[in-house]
Design a protein around this nucleic acid. Sequence first.
DNA 1: CGTCTATTTGAATGTACTCAAAAGCGGTGG
DNA 2: CCACCGCTTTTGAGTACATTCAAATAGACG
Lengths: 197, 197
Amino acid sequence: MQMIGTELIIENISNYIHLDEKEKELFLSLLIPATISRKQLILQEGEICRYSTFVYEGCLRGYTYDKNGMEHVLNFAPKNWWIADMYSWISQRPGILNIEALVDSKVLKLSKVNQDILYKEVPKFERFFRIIIEKSLVASQERVLNNLSLTAEERYNKFCAKYPSLIEHVPLKQVASYIGVTPEFFSKMRNGLLKKK
Amino acid sequence: MQMIGTELIIENISNYIHLDEKEKELFLSLLIPATISRKQLILQEGEICRYSTFVYEGCLRGYTYDKNGMEHVLNFAPKNWWIADMYSWISQRPGILNIEALVDSKVLKLSKVNQDILYKEVPKFERFFRIIIEKSLVASQERVLNNLSLTAEERYNKFCAKYPSLIEHVPLKQVASYIGVTPEFFSKMRNGLLKKK
DNA sequence: CGTCTATTTGAATGTACTCAAAAGCGGTGG
DNA sequence: CCACCGCTTTTGAGTACATTCAAATAGACG
């Protein structure tokens, strides 16, 4: 099964940069495979994010607690996505994100040190990570604008359209958190209890 | 005065990568200086974003209209910042952002073609842009979490703390739009008319 | 099967919005 | 230099969207 993970990540990267066999081997040698069981945390608030994590099976999520102890989901990382506490990752200072598995998952971890080796040995990876971060930025900015301009119901519809695969795996309460409403309101919204006075 | 712009942008870049004289010259030769007068649009919804713009004097903003015709500010670009419609810039497809000058401003424009030349001739620039996009992503994610977890008043306080220089230049109604409230509510909030019943 | 968590439902409340209108402010032209 | 115009900011009253709190129901996992 581990073979699948390495194939997937190489395929993923090949969408953006071309790697020869030697470069692929080096890259794979810098990754640490790991299995994460449901509800297991791989990063906690206050810790330094030492790995960028590629998910090749299952699904993770990143979230924070506000001052009232409420959870807020920043992002989901299904199969084929990377996840990290970006702030902590680039600064190597304590972060605010918790990252946990929503279901039993399999990942490949790239440490900061190994990423630096990678950048040095195969500078093309600067390009690869630049491109995926650009895409994350576009998605994040779109979400900011959605939060500013759409109602909860519209945000939910967009979420369903954009991430249909997540609807299956992710508990409703966490979708509610992602789009920015309480589970109670979310439930009423989905069941049309709002319009019936 | 134009000299100041090139000095500023080189200083800015030197925080992240080291350039020799030849590389600096090449880079500067790829930039197009421009002056933008107050309220002038340099990009409109539906157009393709052909330039990434570095502001060395003044301040620009990026915003969209929602389906009700309301404006929503995505970002401000004061002195020393870059601005573009990121979605349109990376895809070279029609975007949704309008970008205008809030005050008379001076900028340096880098076209997509010239950026590609730059990446080819001086691959270190992949690193530079990767790093500034990483920082933008961190800021955008922080804003998402703020919108999910803070009240309007808390968001305003954070905004003031984070961008003190903007408060001087930017009309209140646009700060209101940025933090995600109406100008009316924003005014009441600032003047404490909410607590007095 | 029992326990724990997620989801649903209802009632009361609060935060922020809409609409309307007045007041302030800055630039421009007579 | 003042008057006017357009745009921003303020204020008030009524409303809507979303929350809180409480409690019942349903589902999932061990």
